[in-house]
């Protein structure tokens, strides 16, 4: 073999080696790597006609807590449960009350008299407007995870996601009864709660509405736990619910409309009492991707208060 041929061959190989090493070294940089070929395509869900959105974000309240629990709004005051405290402040952000709770609270509700009912993991407690504890219910069993509260006259409804049941308490904190929504009718399995998202509310007509997250439905129950009617629209489109356990949180507006907040594709929407989508409050672009569904509350004027767990703030949305 001729020497010059060998040399040319060798130099070619050296060049190939250099190209591969340098090329590879440069290739793994963020701006030179390709996107995810196996991306879960949610564009169809996320792209929504922006004209449907009739709310805009106007205010944020920064929360000074590590783990927010829940919010409620009543009488021009915002009630916040977070870490192991309960805080009340006015719309200007001035604190009115702050009390330490014995354990974290995940939800709370305010009565017309201004009493604050707080839901702990397995118990319910009532505090006066001045922050004094009036009573605390007997603890429920180990499985209990209370995720939501609602009030109707003298009854307190507590949604227990762990036991897949709604518990009833008197205004004095005495346990009365529970129901699991089960009936003898075929296929009616009661509440299907795959994860700790289980909300309920009482509308102005005194009807109890419970989310059945596994069925992606809003169900109307009598106080005895009999299913009266339900609203359901399983769809990834804007007018329906999809994924598991949605809507994650609800609040009922002064006119009986439902304010809903979803996880997965995080969004807040308002439904007519008849179950038709009336308007959209906030689209997923407002929230962190794969964020937690915000707890929602609404005041008499229809202003929406959303507790953003990921950004640690209460976000206010007002009609445009």
């Amino acid at each position: 073999m001729k020497k010059s041929v060998i040399y040319i061959f060798l130099s070619l190989i050296v060049i190939i080696i250099l190209i591969i090493v340098i090329g590879d070294f440069r290739s793994t940089r963020p701006d030179r790597m390709s996107g995810n070929p196996y991306k879960l395509n949610l564009d169809r869900i996320k792209s929504v006609d922006p004209n449907l959105v009739t709310y805009q974000e106007t205010k944020n309240y920064r929360i000074n807590a590590r783990q927010a629990g829940g919010i409620a709004v009543a009488g021009e005051k915002i009630y916040l449960a977070a870490d192991t405290f309960l805080q009340v402040f006015d719309y200007a952000g001035r604190q009115i009350l702050k009390i330490t709770l014995p354990e974290p609270a995940g939800c709370l509700e305010v009565s017309k008299q201004g009493d604050i009912i707080v839901g702990h993991r397995n118990a319910v407690a009532l505090y006066s407007a001045a922050g004094e504890m009036k009573w605390r219910s007997e603890p429920l069993d180990e499985r209990a995870v209370i995720t939501a509260l609602a009030l109707k006259d003298g009854t307190i409804f507590a949604a227990d996601a762990g036991n897949r049941a709604v518990h009833l308490y008197t205004a004095e904190g005495k346990y009365v009864d529970s129901f699991e929504g089960k009936t003898s009718i075929e296929g009616n399995h009661g509440f299907i709660v795959p994860s700790p998202y289980f909300d309920l509310g009482v509308n102005p007509d005194g009807e109890l509405w419970v989310v059945n997250p596994g069925k992606l439905a809003l169900e109307n129950y009598t106080d005895e736990g009999n299913l009266r009617s339900y609203l359901e629209n399983i769809s990834p489109e804007i007018d329906g619910f999809s994924g598991c356990c949605n809507p994650a949180h609800i609040a009922i507006m002064a006119d009986g409309s439902f304010l809903t907040s979803e996880k997965g594709v995080v969004r807040i929407k308002i439904y007519e009492p008849s179950g038709e989508l009336s308007t959209v409050v906030a689209l997923p672009d407002k929230f962190m991707e794969d964020g937690e569904a915000p707890d929602v509350a609404v005041d008499e004027e229809g202003i929406v208060y959303a507790l953003d767990y990921d950004r640690n703030m209460i976000r206010i949305f007002e009609p445009k």
Partner: peptide, 15 residues
Amino acid sequence: ICGYCDLCGGYFIPG
């Protein structure tokens, strides 16, 4: 920690 959902977000395509 599985919820044993019918509509599983990991199994079904959205929609």
